[in-house]
């Protein structure tokens, strides 16, 4: 018997067989077949006793060389197969990344809330507190304390819904000015967003229920120029830098001087269009210096303190900001509408 020949045969055999190995299981089978305890290389070693003593080292050496060789082949092949396996797995697990993601329904904020919160945050940044007051008010807070005595023509400016002889639905958020002044010592710096009510028939631009925010600043040395600067800042925050702001004389019983604030039209920018009735301007709020009578009635010294106040219609602001042409849409709560914000 020529063990060296056998080794050569085994080598050829293994080389050929390796080519047929397609996966790790077959590879393991092959390892056992050649390198296992009962494998072909081991079989050579077991036959060593049967050959000449001087041949033994030669055969032993060759057998070890072949063993290492096959081990090397198996190792290389294993690496290759593993790579292929990973590759195959990736291919098998491939997904269509263009399919849509799972639906996550986060609830929306009503646009009125969005604009109110936005305003609140701007004012908080300017050092204002957020104040509140009741929606059912007394004549005193809604009118008298705001320098609107009974039988004054200014009462015609607001059609009032009454509960009884004592109470009414507040026609503006201005009563919160009075309540704040009564409760606090100056300096005062508040805004007071909330619901207000008027006896106005419901149509595209009127609603018996709508929202306003009042603003009030009282301190020593507060001037009309402070009012202007504050309002210009708000307009910029809400409508952007490119808007012009104009103040024109107006009348509110609780402010003197009083002003109406216009911004350059958001649609035409001042050229004139149907939205701004071809004036180029949109009226957005009323403002003025707190009337001395109001300060006095609320117990503030009109010669020491001064202040400004303003009132903004929030619904109108929402309509302008989002280009909505009918106030009723805000209260219909159509899901298709709500989901645009």
């Amino acid at each position: 018997m020529d063990l060296l020949d056998d080794l050569k045969k085994i080598e050829k055999e293994a080389e050929a067989e390796l080519k047929e190995v397609a996966d790790l299981d077959q590879l393991e089978e092959m390892r056992i077949k050649y390198l296992g305890k009962k494998g072909k290389i081991q079989a050579i070693f077991s036959q060593m006793g049967k050959i000449e003593a001087d041949q033994r080292p030669v055969v032993g050496k060759e057998a070890n060389i072949l063993k290492e060789k096959i081990q090397g082949w198996l190792g290389e092949h294993k690496e290759r197969l593993e790579k292929e396996a990973v590759q195959k797995r990736f291919e098998a697990e491939k997904i269509d990344v263009t399919l849509p993601g799972s639906e996550v329904e986060a609830g929306r904020s009503h646009p009125l809330s969005l604009v109110t919160k936005e305003l609140e945050d701007i004012f908080i940044g300017l050092g204002f507190d957020i104040a509140e007051g009741p929606e059912v008010e007394s004549e005193y807070y809604n009118f008298e304390a705001l320098n609107i005595p009974a039988h004054h023509p200014a009462r015609d400016l607001q059609d009032t819904l009454y509960i009884d002889d004592h109470y009414l639905l507040r026609t503006h958020t201005s009563p919160v000015q009075i309540r704040t002044m009564e409760a606090e010592e100056p300096p005062v710096r508040i805004i007071a967003p909330g619901r207000v009510y008027r006896s106005d028939e419901l149509d595209a631009s009127h609603s018996p229920i709508f929202h306003q925010t009042e603003g009030l600043v009282i301190d020593k040395d507060i001037s009309f120029s402070d009012l202007k600067g504050t309002i210009e800042l708000i307009v910029e925050a809400l409508f952007g830098k490119e808007r012009d702001v104009r103040f024109r004389p107006s009348y509110f019983p609780f402010t003197e001087p009083s002003a109406e604030v216009d911004v350059s039209c958001i649609v035409c920018g001042g050229e004139g269009c149907p939205l701004c009735s071809h004036t180029g301007w949109l009226e957005i709020m009323g403002a003025g210096m707190v009337h001395p009578n109001v300060l006095e009635m609320s117990g503030y010294d009109k010669d020491v303190y001064s202040g400004f106040a303003f009132g903004v219609g929030l619904d109108r602001l929402v309509l302008l900001k989002y280009g909505i042409d009918d106030i009723r849409v805000l209260y219909e709560n159509d899901k298709r509408f709500l989901h645009q914000f």
Binding site: G125, L126, F128, P187, S223, R246, P249, P257
Partner: peptide, 24 residues
Amino acid sequence: IARVYGYNKIPSTRPISKQRGKRT
């Protein structure tokens, strides 16, 4: 006097706040 002077000629300033604004 403000009407004669012109509302829009009055400068714009901002009152200095001595308080931090907040929600209740």
